[in-house]
Structures are given as structure tokens and as C-alpha cells.
Amino acid sequence: MSKRVHKTARRADALSKARIVEAAIEILDAQGEAALTFRALAAHLATGSGAIYWHIADRNGLLAAATSDVLARALASVAEEEEPRAAIRAIALAVFDAIDAHPWAGAHLSREPWHSAVGEIFERVGGWLQPLGVPVDAQFDCASALTNYILGVAGQNAANARMLPGGTDRKAWLEGMAAGWIQDDPGSRPFLRRVAVQLGEHDDRQQFVAGVDFILAGACVGRNA
């Protein structure tokens, strides 16, 4: 083995995959997904791109690894629960909060629904359906509905937050949106007129949990749950 190859191998070993993923998350959180390039990451780590390629093949691999990391940490932090509904809510909120803090992770999962983190969420949620009393032949559909709801709403919430300029008054912005929906015709959209005030005042996190509860209530209809 030449001295140059040996030196490159030692440098790649010294720079762990965990440190590369950590640096990628730092860039993604601070500057967004567009800023994550191998050149930017190499500069951030004060190394050469070759040392990074030693561990991760391409940019999509970087995004996948970073997404795995933030979701794994979120799910690992979920407190142990004995009651099935409370356990499912805790899992859902852990994912919601992780994607709220790292919007790029939600965007990546929407493009890569086969990501292992999706399977882990599916497993965590589905594992509580039997104790909850959901019939065996309905558990797949229920777990699918919950997983899709959790990822879809969490991702959309994070995307909405990114679209608002810094310093935006959220309540005023939502009220303006509601007003725009109902201003064309005084007699149109009666439901929106009834709930317009709630739209401006609602809490995204509480509304998210309410949606989880609605799905669980439907899954357990007629089972005294």
C-alpha cells in the first residue's frame, strides 16, 4: 500500500460517519436543504471530499442518514407508556416535534417513503393497536392511516412555518387567510365562516393530536374503547 493511500485511509477512519451526519444536520438546520453539498460539508469539517465519500456515497445518502439520525433520536426519547392511546400520541408528537425542528427531514421522507424511519414509525404505532383492541384485519389499514397522517401533517406544518417570513404575526396571517377564503360571497362557505375564529387561534400541536384521536376513535368504534 502506498503512503498516500495509507494516509487517506487513516484520515477517513478518523472522520467518523457519525461526525459527518452531525455536520450535515448542522448545515441543514442553519441554511436549509439547498446548502447541503459535499463541498460545503467538507469545508464545514475542514477536510477533503474524499474523506466524506469514504463513508457516504452521495447527497441523497447524506439526507437519508441525517433524517435517520433525527428521527431515531426523537423516537428514542419517547417516554414509556402503559396505555395504548397515550403511547401512540407520544410517538406521534415525537415525530411532529422532530420534523418541526428539522423541516428538511419531513421533505426527505415525502420523497422517500421507503426510508427505514417510516418503517420504524409504522412498527411503533402498529404495535399498540392490538392492546388498543383494533381487530387484527383492521390493524394494517389503521397503522397506515396513522403513519400517513403523522408524516403528512408534520411535514405540511413544517413547510407552512418555513413559508412565513421571520417576525410574521401567525394569528393575523391565519385570520387574513380565512378572510380571503370567505370574502367573495357573503353567503358562501358557511362552515368556514363558523370556524374562521378558530382558524386564527388554533394550536397546531393540539390540532395534530386531535387528528390522531379521531383516527383511533374510528378504529375502535363498537369496541367499547
Results as ranks from 00 to 15, higher is better:
Ile88His: 12
Ala79Pro: 02
Asp58Thr: 03
Ile99Tyr: 02
Leu62Ser: 03
His102Pro: 10
Trp104Lys: 13
Ala65Gly: 14
Gln31Trp: 10
Glu22Ser: 13
Trp54Gly: 08
Val70Gln: 04
Leu109Pro: 00
Leu36Gln: 02
Pro103Tyr: 13
Tyr53Ser: 09
Ala46Cys: 07
Glu82Phe: 06
Glu26Thr: 15
Pro84Tyr: 01
Glu82Leu: 12
Gln31His: 15
Arg59Gln: 12
Ala24Lys: 06
Ala40Ser: 15
Asp97Trp: 09
Tyr53Thr: 05
Glu22Asp: 15
His44Cys: 11
Arg19Thr: 15
Ala42Pro: 01
His55Glu: 10
Val21Ala: 07
Glu22Arg: 14
Asp100Pro: 04
Leu41Asp: 14
Asp97Gly: 07
Ala87Ser: 14
Ala86Glu: 06
Phe38Ile: 15
Ala76Arg: 12
Phe96Gly: 03
Ile56Met: 03
Glu81Leu: 02
Leu62Tyr: 05
His44Ile: 09
Thr47Ile: 12
Asn60Ser: 12
Gly106Asp: 04
Ala51Thr: 08
Arg73Val: 13
Ser49Glu: 15
Ala51Asp: 01
Arg85Thr: 11
Ala86Cys: 00
Ala92Asp: 01
Glu80Pro: 05
Ala79His: 13
Gln31Tyr: 14
Glu83Thr: 04
Ala107Ile: 15
Ala105Asp: 07
Ile88Lys: 13
Leu75Gly: 11
Ala101Asp: 10
Ile27Trp: 09
Tyr53Ala: 02
Ala46Leu: 13
Leu62Asn: 06
Gln31Met: 11
